[in-house]
């Protein structure tokens, strides 16, 4: 492609190349048009980016849903209806262990992503198995806490506070359950079909999901447990 700007004898005052007058974004350095995919003349973006971005939007909408549940919990926190309060119910040692398990699970999921990118099937399966074990341990502790609360007559029907509590924490637990099933599916698919591009995209979405769940858990243990136990 010949640029008419460099041609000798070009008509003065005629700007040959269409440039962004504000020098924003990718043309800031003045490198002109790019042929990169997803940038106009570069054609559509690769499927991996489209899929990843779409899943990113879904995760953000999921986080918005969690924000609504968090708002409900924060509003209904005082509505104990004469029943037990958070300070009486929450076992912070249990919550700390749960947090550690989920954090290590997220870390192992990152290792699995690295193994996937390095195309090392054995390391991938091992890291995913570790991810599953930590996630399952988290879920077991959460279920034990729930059954313990229900046995102490502090189930979701006891008060508005407990309804909101079970909604927030239970919704996160449901996500973890779905994530564990998805994790097993990904292990089986990589085992059976290998490192195919579509399988790689699915594992990428799974790892995004798993890391996002850990981010939501940070909000759960802060807003629900630590701040809930203080009041």
């Amino acid at each position: 492609m010949s640029s008419s700007a460099a041609m000798p004898g070009a008509v003065p005052g005629v700007v040959p190349m269409r440039r962004d007058p504000n020098h924003l974004g990718h043309h800031a350095a003045g490198e002109g048009e790019t042929r990169a995919p997803g940038r106009g003349i570069g054609g559509p973006a690769p499927k991996r980016i489209v899929v990843g971005y779409g899943f990113w939007i879904f995760l953000l909408s999921d986080i918005v849903m969690f924000a609504a549940f968090f708002a409900a919990f924060a509003v209904l926190q005082g509505g104990t209806a004469g029943g037990p309060t958070g300070a009486e119910l929450f076992d912070l040692t249990n919550v700390a262990i749960e947090t550690g398990l989920l954090l290590l699970s997220s870390f192992a999921c990152g290792i699995a992503t690295l193994a996937l990118n390095a195309r090392r099937p054995l390391a991938f399966q091992a890291a995913m198995a570790v991810t599953f074990l930590f996630g399952a341990g988290f879920l077991a502790l959460e279920l034990r806490e729930f059954t313990d609360l229900v046995a102490r007559d502090a189930g979701p029907t006891r008060s508005a506070f407990l309804s909101a509590f079970f909604t927030v924490v239970g919704c996160h637990g449901l996500h973890v359950t779905a994530g564990l099933l998805w994790l097993l599916t990904m292990m089986a698919q990589v085992l059976a079909k290998g490192f195919r591009p579509d399988i790689l995209r699915r594992v990428m979405c799974f790892s995004l999901f798993w890391h996002a769940l850990d981010i939501v858990w940070v909000a759960v243990f802060t807003v629900v447990y630590l701040m809930g136990a203080a009041t």
Partner: peptide, 8 residues
Amino acid sequence: HADVAPGD
């Protein structure tokens, strides 16, 4: 000059 998928 291309985008990067989230997480990548």
